[in-house]
Amino acid sequence: MKKIRLLVVDDAKFIRDLVQKTLRAEYPEFEIQEADNGRRAQSILKNQSFDLILCDWEMPEMSGLELLKWIRSNEDMQDQSFIMVTSLDQKENVVEALQAGVNNYVTKPFSAEQLISKIMKELVRSGKLTQAEVNSLGRKDRIASAGGAELLAGGLAAKPVTVKKGPREKGLLLLNAEQKYPMQVKDVNPREITLQVTREASLQLGQPVLLGLMGGTEDAPLKVSVRAFVLSQQLAERTPRSEQQLVKAVFLKQDPETAQKFDQLLNAPQG
């Protein structure tokens, strides 16, 4: 397997160090280079190539968005894999990045698990690695050894939570007062959710949605409606006739009361 080369671009040195330490602890095979702003990254990219760029948005001299637009305007780099890593989590920011050609979007704060998952998915999507090669890397649970990078850039640890099978796995997708669709929750954690819903639910990347989630037990049910935006979509089955779609959505900032209910739902016993 060829050596994977990554470029980490962020004006905050501690973020660059944390990203590098996390990745090296998990995948010592990776070759990682860094730049402290978009202008420096631009200079590096004129002479070197990388399998993936992890880039902050807000930086001096040249922002991450400006760097992304420059890359997409360069014929030799139009297919360059680019993940935006930023604290800008508003819908308009995500839409702007998508329109500029970003491949994925990670908001700060984020867990090491979330970052690594996005990286590996993009490397597979872009053909830099096959799923078999990813599996052969023999990744171990060594996140703790990454030096306190359980949640990069601060905040509370966002441990993934998988919804258990059963009646509480269902929910409701609301596009507006008239458009409501039953959905099935596949995975959910404090930052994002993967759900299955009919293709009749017409969705677009970056579109805001309201998700009615249920949890808890039959004796102590919990319900909460949370705001999110659509990050990605794909057919639920490998056939163009699939009547279902898998949708990944990222949760937006909730009001304090909703955030508390959502946290209770994620941490409550299921069944």
Rank of each mutant, 00 (worst) to 15 (best):
Leu137Lys: 06
Ile4Thr: 15
Ser63Gln: 04
Glu122Phe: 02
Glu243Met: 05
Lys2Cys: 05
Arg40Phe: 04
Arg5Pro: 05
Pro109Ile: 07
Leu252Ala: 14
Glu237Lys: 08
Glu218Phe: 12
Arg72Trp: 04
Ala149Asn: 13
Ala25His: 14
Ala177Ile: 02
Arg139Gly: 07
Met183Gln: 12
Glu192Leu: 10
Ile83Trp: 00
Leu210Phe: 05
Met84Leu: 11
Ala236His: 04
Ser111Lys: 06
Val19Pro: 01
Lys21Met: 05
Gly138Val: 10
Leu67Arg: 10
Thr239Ile: 00
Ser232Trp: 07
Pro208Leu: 03
Asp187Glu: 15
Tyr27Phe: 13
Ala41Tyr: 08
Leu98His: 03
Gly171Phe: 09
Ile44Phe: 03
Glu61Ile: 13
Val161Glu: 11
Asp10Glu: 04
Val188Cys: 15
Glu61Lys: 14
Val8Cys: 00
Leu265Asn: 10
Val9Asn: 09
Gly38Ile: 09
Ser202Phe: 01
Val94Glu: 01
Pro167Ile: 07
Leu18Gly: 15
Glu257Val: 09
Thr239Met: 03
Gln254Met: 00
Asp79Trp: 00
Gly212Met: 06
Gln42Ala: 14
Ile53Lys: 11
Glu192Trp: 12
Pro240Tyr: 02
Ala236Ile: 01
Val19Met: 10
Pro208Asp: 01
Lys186Asp: 13
Met120Ile: 12
Ile143Cys: 04
Gln99Phe: 05
Thr22Glu: 06
Glu29Lys: 12
Asp79Met: 00
Ala268Arg: 02
Lys46Thr: 13
Phe262Val: 02
Pro160Ser: 08
Leu205Trp: 00
Ala177Lys: 14
Gln244Glu: 15
Ala35Glu: 05
Val8Gln: 03
Leu52Phe: 09
Val19Glu: 08
Pro190Trp: 04
Arg142Trp: 11
Val188Ala: 13
Val9Tyr: 02
Phe82Gln: 04
Arg241Asp: 10
Asp89Trp: 06
Ile71Tyr: 01
Asp10Trp: 02
Lys164Thr: 14
Arg39Gln: 14
Met214Asp: 14
Leu6Gln: 05
Ala41Arg: 12
Leu18His: 13
Gly212Cys: 07
Phe14Asp: 15
Asp56Ala: 05
Gln234Cys: 11
Arg16Ser: 06
Pro221Glu: 02
Phe82Val: 03
Asp89Gln: 12
Lys223Arg: 12
Met77Thr: 14
Val9Lys: 06
Lys121Glu: 15
Lys248Phe: 00
Lys164Ser: 14
Gln33Lys: 08
Ala228Phe: 02
Ile53Arg: 09
Asn135Leu: 02
Gln179Leu: 08
Arg191Ser: 15
Met77Tyr: 08
Asp36Ala: 10
Val124His: 09
Gln90Glu: 15
Lys165Gly: 15
Arg5Asn: 07
Glu237Pro: 00
Gly216Lys: 07
Leu137Ser: 05
Val226Lys: 07
Gln131Thr: 12
Glu178Trp: 09
Glu122Arg: 09
Asn93Leu: 00
Asn37Gln: 07
Val230Asp: 10
Asp219Gln: 14
Thr107Gly: 09
Ser202Cys: 03
Val9Ala: 05
Leu88Arg: 12
Ser111Arg: 10
Leu6Pro: 07
Glu75His: 08
Asn74Ala: 11
Lys46Val: 04
Glu61His: 13
Gly166Met: 08
Thr194Ile: 15
Pro60Phe: 06
Glu133Lys: 04
Ser43Gly: 13
Ala158Arg: 14
Val124Met: 06
Tyr181Met: 03
